[in-house]
Structures are given as C-alpha cells and as structure tokens.
Design a protein around this nucleic acid. Structure first.
Length: 583
DNA sequence: GCCGTTTTCGGCCCGACTGTTTTCAGTCG
C-alpha cells in the first residue's frame, strides 16, 4: 500500500468520525496524520515490517502510538478496526455527500438517521419529494440550494489548473478595480501558495473604499459583476460567487490596517494557520484575519504586513509556497529555511520546439525570445520520428536540423547559446527511435515517453531504465508521464528511476508546463534526496510559452529547493560540465 | 489522537455567513 492510499484511508476515517460526531480533536489528528503521511518521501509500508525500526513512524510529526498502529494495520490488512467499525455503521457513499454545498457532517448524519438517505441519488430523490422539509433547519430555500448543488457537482467536481485560475483572477481583478478607492487586489489561497490546481479563487481587496463604514458600496459593486453566474453569499465584507465554468470565487474587502493579517490568513494553508495560531497562544497572543493581538489587553502587536506578523511570533518570513505545515514553522524558528530558488536564478531552458515539428515559431524567434527573457543558453529539442502526429524528425531531417541550429547559434553572436538537441521517443522496448550516430551530433538529448498510462508499473519502469542506459541520453524528459488532472502519478516506480538517473548522471526534467508538471513536489524532494541533477524547462511550442517558467519555479519552491539544487541555474560552461559527459 | 520551556494530563484556532432561528447551530474557509 502506498502513502497516497494510506493518507486517503486516514482522511476517510476522519470524515466518518465527523459524521459519527466524535471528538473534534481526535478527528483533527486523523486529518493531520493523513497530511503528514502524504508528504513523506519514503514509503511507509517499508517502515512497518517486523524488522523495521518501530521508532521510524513515531518520528513523523502528527503520528503517535495509536496512529502508528493504525498505519501498520492498514499496510498489513488493507483496513483498520476503527474504519471497519464506522463502515459497518455508515455507507461509504456518505463521504461524497460531504462535498455538496451546505452538507456538513451533522446534516449527513441527520438525513441518514431520519430518512436512511446515504448517497447522492437518494438525497436528490428525497429533496424533490419534499422529505427534507420535515427536518429541522431545512426549509424550501435549503432544498433548492441543495438540488442546484447536486446538479453542479455532477457537472463539474474538478479542480482548476493554476494557470487557468490565474487568468480568471486577472480578469476579475480588472473588473473590481473599476470601482473608485480600490488600491490592491491580491490572489490568496492555494493560487498564492502555488498549488498545481486550485479548488476556488480567493481575492483579497483593500483600499480606501474597503474601510469600515464605506465598504458596503464596494461590496455591492463586486456582487453585481457581470461575469457572476451564481451569487453564493454576500456579507459585510465578503462576496462569494461562481463563474459559468463553476469556478468559485471568494472576494474579501478589508481595511488597509489589517492587510497583512488578512493576507496571511487567506493564504493558508489551513493547517499552517492552525499551527501558527497555536504558536501565538503559547506566546499570550491571538491571531485572526484582522490582527495579531495581545490576549491580556487586546493591544495590536502586528497587522499591516505578513513580515511583522511572522516576526512577532519569533519566526523568519515564510514564503507562501512553504505554508503547508510540513516543518516550515520549525525551520523558520531556528533560521534554517532554505534560500528558495527564484525565476531570476534560471539561466537556460533545455526543452523547446520549433516549426520544424509541432511548434509555431522558428529557431531564431525562439532564441530571440529567450534572450529577451534574460536567458543565456537554450536547447532546441524538436520531436523525433516516432511521434508521427507532430511531424517528427527522422535521422536525415534531424541531422539537417542540427545544421540550422548551429547556424542560428553563430548568428546570435554569443549573446545567447543555442544548442542542437532532440526530444527522442522511448519505444515500447526501451530503445530510442533514432540512430546513435544521429544522437551523437546533439548536445542535448531528452528522452521522453509519450504514452504509458495503460501499462503495468514494472514494464514502464523497465522501459525507462533501459532508455536512460543509452549513453547519449542527457535528460530524462516527462519522467512520470503524468498529465495533470488526469493524473496517475504512480504509473511508474519513480524511486527506482530517480535513483538510477542519479547513478548515471542523467538529469531529470521538471517540466514547467502546467498541463504536464511531471514531477510533483514529492518527486522533486525525492530527486534531491537521491542526488539527481534537476533541470526545469518550459517545453515551449511558441515564444510566449517561455513565460511559463514561473510555474515550474513555483513548484520547485514548494519542494523547498534552492538555486543550488537546479542545474540550469549554472552559467553555460559549468552547466555543460555538470551534464552527463558525451560518449 | 497528539503533544510537552504550562511534559504524562489537559489542553487543542478564529471569525463570517446562512437559514430559520426569536438566540443559534451548522457550515465554510
């Protein structure tokens, strides 16, 4: 059983305990344990055997004696006594009900005991038949909202890619800004933390129009934006609505003086905030979205900026990407936070396409665009022949392409280096689809698998291992073959692949394209642990796609990586010297 | 169920909004 499954089962148990009205703190500890398990880079199943160190599980924050026993049971039997007990009492489909708007654990439990309704279809039926109105606090309005919620849930229960979410954030911000007296609109929540996907959009608005007394006019403005599909809630300083694509947007309008506290609060994550508030209480303080206050006399200690709030809690400033309650508070307390990589650290982009295959722009255009973005070297890595739909290059065309790339390199006159390369496809048996003699002419050979989702893990893993054994391969592209939102992150044994890549000196690619995002933060941490050479690149198919490097950087930051952990932060000569030597 | 410079018991984050309530419980973030 892998960590993701263990985490899911613990989280499920937490939800069932909630429906069972168990001790809220006990529920929280199950949630916390689930998150902790999910963030481990070592598979817990290897720590539960008879000869494993019994202390290993207990070393993880949030896992004590009881939870360690639960995890051992899960690994050994696939379940655990408490979970079995709860599942005998409730139906597993009830967990889905919790995801409907307005349906919390109390309501789910109530309709189960009162009406024996435990799944979405039955709930819809009961609502339409008017059975819900016999229950307390569930009138006509509640029923209508619920039916709409069920409809929406069926239509779209997914999350949104970070780049899409950002685009919506920009559009909405522009409309809000039309109201006079709005200074600043900042996306908070998981968008600011740089999660690959966001469930909803949090926009923080501040300015003279948001001060108490006058804020209601600005609230009205936001609540009547033309792009609103459904208005979900409107309060004194908060407006929630959904767009036509079902993305939920929460807008909060807050006074300038509490901007820092509000930004901190709405950025989250929830677990980070809980831990931060606990720390505040230990220091005789209390933290809310308005301010950090001294408990004894309610005097404001900090509120205007995030920096002063963290400082007042004896912490170094914690970047949003790290706020997941996975050790960042401890590191901030003892000044051991990493010096996170930034976009400005990146000097080269090693993966891009041109109009020779499925790209849009020419070699020269890509080079000029990269230069304009401050890069000092790039590799042109068009597709090889196996990918017929991309007009992939056969050996002859690939060699001719090398010539043209070298010519452009010369034309650029040293302002930027343009390296000949290829994104070569890994065939089913692990061979590459071009001749070694062709590959020997390339500076950068990126070996990628483009379809692997239907194969057993062992086969896919063996295929990749064989491919990187080819001495011409310098970068393993799309290492997990993962497509975001259709993700099957474990269709390959990444532990084995990364270890072998490290031994061979093959760099592993972190693809910045949000649709690809091959290595998630766990993989990246694992790659660092194994001593892999990590490169981040854009896989750009047009000049403007070079801009998406920021997204890759954000993911690297989430994995606590510094510039020194990433190969293409090095100047050109050092970078080339660090790559696997050409045979 | 976890945790400890309040350490093996007694704590455990904070506030807004909704619906249906005449004072609040439940949900949400």
């Amino acid at each position: 059983m892998d960590n993701i499954t263990i985490a899911r089962l613990l989280d499920e148990t937490a939800a069932l305990l909630e429906i069972d009205a168990a001790d809220p703190f006990r529920i929280r500890s199950y949630r916390r344990a689930a998150e902790a398990v999910e963030q481990q880079t070592t598979q817990l199943a290897t720590l539960t055997g008879p000869d494993a160190d019994p202390k290993a599980l207990l070393a993880i924050a949030g896992i004590g004696k009881g939870m360690a026993a639960n995890i051992r049971d899960l690994v050994a039997t696939g379940s655990m006594p408490l979970r079995d007990e709860l599942l005998a009492k409730y139906k597993p489909t009830m967990l889905e009900l919790l995801r409907l708007p307005g349906m919390g654990p109390k309501t789910v439990a109530l309709i189960w005991t009162a009406l024996a309704v435990g799944d979405i279809d039955a709930l819809e039926e009961a609502a339409k038949a008017g059975h819900l109105s016999t229950l307390p606090r569930m009138g006509e309005k509640f029923t209508l909202k619920l039916l709409k919620g069920i409809e929406d849930y069926r239509k779209n229960s997914g999350r949104f890619r970070i780049d899409d979410a950002e685009e919506h954030a920009l559009r909405i911000s522009a409309l809000i800004r039309e109201f006079p007296g709005i200074d600043q609109i900042t996306p908070a929540g998981s968008l600011r933390r740089g999660r690959e996907t966001v469930g909803d959009l949090d926009l923080l608005v501040t300015g003279p129009a948001c001060e108490p007394g006058v804020v209601s006019a600005a609230v009205e403005h936001v609540a009547s934006l033309p792009l609103i599909d459904k208005l979900l809630a409107k309060g004194q300083n908060k407006v929630s609505f959904t767009l036509r694509n079902n993305l939920q947007v929460d807008v909060r309008l807050l006074p300038r003086a509490s901007y820092g506290a509000a930004l901190q609060y709405f950025t989250g994550s929830k677990m980070h905030n809980v831990a931060l508030r606990q720390r505040a209480i230990k220091r005789g303080l209390t933290l809310s979205e308005y301010a950090l206050l001294r408990l004894e006399d309610n005097v404001i200690v900090a509120a205007a900026s995030e920096e002063e709030i963290y400082r007042a809690l004896d912490l170094d400033y914690i970047a949003p990407e790290l706020r997941e309650n996975s050790g960042e508070l401890e590191a901030a307390a003892n000044h051991s936070l990493p010096n996170l990589i930034t976009l400005a650290d990146i000097r080269g982009d090693l993966h891009m396409h041109t109009n020779a295959t499925d790209g849009r722009d020419t070699i020269r255009q890509m080079a000029e665009a990269a230069l304009a973005r401050g890069l000092s070297y790039i590799a042109i890595t068009d597709h090889s022949k196996h990918l017929a739909m991309t007009n992939g290059l056969d050996d002859a065309r690939a060699l001719a392409h090398v010539q043209r790339i070298r010519e452009v390199d010369a034309e650029m006159d040293g302002r930027i280096r343009v390296l000949p390369g290829i994104e070569v496809d890994i065939l089913a048996d692990g061979a590459l689809d071009l001749e070694d003699s062709t590959l020997s002419q390339m500076d950068i050979v990126v070996a990628s698998i483009h379809s692997r989702f239907d194969q057993p893990i062992e086969e896919t893993t063996a295929r990749v291992l064989r491919a990187i054994d080819n001495p011409h391969v310098r970068i393993l592209g799309h290492p997990t073959g993962r497509m975001l939102l259709k993700r099957d992150a474990y269709a390959i044994n990444m532990d084995v692949v990364l270890q072998r890549a490290a031994e061979l000196g093959v760099a592993v690619e972190h693809n910045a394209a949000p649709a690809r995002a091959d290595l998630n933060d766990l993989h990246l941490r694992l790659a660092k642990q194994h001593g892999c050479k990590i490169v981040v690149d854009t896989d750009a198919h047009a000049t403007e796609e070079l801009d998406r490097m920021w997204f890759g950087i954000t993911q690297l930051r989430r994995a606590w990586l510094s510039a020194g952990d990433v190969l293409n932060t090095l100047p050109f000569d050092q970078f080339m010297a660090e790559l696997r030597p050409k045979p």
